[in-house]
Design a protein around this nucleic acid. Structure first.
Length: 283
DNA sequence: ATGGGGGCCTGCCGGC
DNA sequence: TGCCGGCAGGCCCCCA
């Protein structure tokens, strides 16, 4: 499911329920997801106050008192739903447990945070906050595409000499952190770049065009609450709606949406994954 | 060294 | 209706 905009949408939805609040009780329904949960995770979460909710790439980071940070990844099918009344003013009830509810956090303010992940490609870990950047899942991440350190100079430095298709280079989280299959396809279309083009063959001008396009598509998707194709929901259970703004993703055979372009969107497979693009206006 | 493919899981959809 | 293959917003790991 989740690329940067979906994860950011979830983070923003969690904030009012969790930030500054105490985890009254944590329950864990299985030993792990993609990897085993850290030792005694439920006990280490119970009673902790959430000092801040941050995001790094596709990871949600919950800084806890006690100097540990909960690292959370949604994999392909992960959802986090918030139920109950975060203000604690009314009687309330929580929805019935669902299949694949793996971790449930009862917040002292009455909210309940439920992590559901059918495919179990998601992950959770606890790690010392002051050494977060040493975590194996975080240590090799490239710049945040919406942050100040992402610019055409740094992107160009990462792409020069690379003989991999630009599609694969943008999916490589070491080059830029947070893009996935949807937003790479969308960004390349907006930039007019053919996904098969070798990364090292991009002119500096085209790289300079790519940078703001990546920022734009991610920002627009965040505003829309992400893209809901199969799995992604916002924390209130609502769908995101950026899928209605797709120009290429999942639009095989449909007309290109570039102004004055008469092309038809094609689907190809690159390194085992679907790529959607317009052969006419992406060169 | 780096690029590509397999594998991890479950669910859903389309075709027969 | 049922069964089967293909496919899915990610990413680690192994192999050439």
């Amino acid at each position: 499911m989740p690329e940067l905009p979906e994860v950011e949408t979830v983070r923003r939805g969690l904030q009012p329920a969790m930030e500054g609040q105490v985890i009254a009780r944590a329950r864990v329904n299985r030993a792990g997801l993609r990897w085993p949960f850290p030792d005694r995770m439920a006990e280490r979460l119970t009673g902790r106050r959430v000092l801040a909710l941050r995001r790094r790439s596709k990871y949600i980071l919950a800084d806890l008192d006690g100097a540990e940070t909960l690292i959370l990844h949604l994999g392909m099918s992960g959802r986090i739903l918030v139920s109950g009344d975060p203000l604690g003013r009314f009687h309330h009830h929580h929805p019935a447990p669902q299949k694949h509810d793996h971790v449930v956090l009862d917040i002292a303010n009455g909210a309940r945070v439920t992590f559901n992940d059918a495919r179990r490609f998601g992950a959770m870990d606890l790690w010392p906050t002051d050494r977060l950047d040493t975590h194996p899942l975080l240590v090799n991440l490239g710049p945040e595409p919406l942050g100040n350190s992402f610019d055409d100079a740094t992107l160009a430095a990462r792409l020069t000499g690379r003989r991999t298709p630009i599609k694969a280079a943008l999916l490589d989280q070491r080059n830029v952190a947070g893009l996935g299959n949807i937003y790479v396809c969308e960004a390349l279309h907006r930039a007019g770049i053919n996904p098969r083009r070798l990364a090292g063959s991009l002119s500096r001008g085209r790289i300079a065009r790519l940078v703001p396009v990546i920022r734009d598509v991610l920002s627009e998707a965040i505003v829309a609450g992400g893209s809901s194709l199969r799995d992604h929901l916002q924390t209130d259970g609502e769908l995101g709606y950026f899928q209605h703004s797709f120009r290429v993703y999942d639009r095989e055979g449909a007309p290109c949406r570039t102004d004055a372009c008469t092309g038809t969107i094609r689907r190809i497979v690159q390194s085992g994954r679907s790529t959607f693009y317009c052969p006419r206006c992406q060169r």
